[in-house]
Amino acid sequence: MAFAAFGSGSAKEHKSPTKSSRIVLALLMPGLVYLGLFFFTPLFSLVVTSLEAPAASGGIGEYEYGFQWQNYVEVVTTYMPQILRSFLYASIATIIALLVSYPLAYFIGVKLRTRPMLQRLMLVLVIAPFFISFLLRTIAWKQIFSDGGALMQFAYSTGLMDKSQHFLGTDAAVIFGLTYNFIPFMTLPLFTTLERFDVRLLEAGSDLYANPAAVFRKITLPLSMPGIISGTLLVFIPIAGDYVNAGQNFLGSSKTSMIGTIVDTEFLQTQNYPIASALSVMLMAVIVALVSLYVRSSGTEDLL
């Protein structure tokens, strides 16, 4: 989407009779240099690294180029459960975030229009957690959910959970953390879309005898699609690559490792750079494929 817009722009407008093309190019230069230096160069280096083979000395972190495409086969066969888990977690967390954020954004953006002070206050409340470090907030949840914490003690004493069971380190704990940490990225785009939503359309709908459900389905939902699409993308993409929540020092356990966790250990602990790079390239490719499929199938290219 973004690439397409970029490509058509530079090729056609070059022939336009305006004298400003040189200026346009000059203005584009910093951006292009930035993109080349900080996106394409590292990407190229990543792809090259992902094709490296172990050096003859066989030491830790020693690799040389060898067009070792088998790295990708190894990554897929070895880490399939972690790959599937990452996308499963990301899908569930995105859906929960959408279900929680939509009513919230609707409330702030539509219902509170007549009370700007309250609307601003609510928005601040949505953003407020961002003022505290992401890591600290996650560690705080870890404390809250710990076996000796009030929540778990309540669950144990009432018999809701058996004493041999825990919440930390389960799929649910990790999905909770992911959803919690990324919810503002869903709420804010939804809010900006719903804020401009023309409520007179709702009145028109009910004047034409549509019941509230039909009004929502035929009017509100289609008109809030841009917010839903950008919100889901902003949440899904970072979650699929998250390496914090599922880590053992945070909300996860060895049973909740995601792609990000594996890349983290492969890169920093075992210094197996080719495998870590191959995993990253694959993660990127799968996300690009999923996202373009999603954008195309929801037919909202013009909305973005």
Binding site: S253, S254, S257, T261, I262, T270, N272
Partner: peptide, 19 residues
Amino acid sequence: TSKEDNEFSQAWSKASNGV
């Protein structure tokens, strides 16, 4: 030896991550 180090650490990190 560096070969052992490499092999053992990778096996260890896989086991720790539940792979």
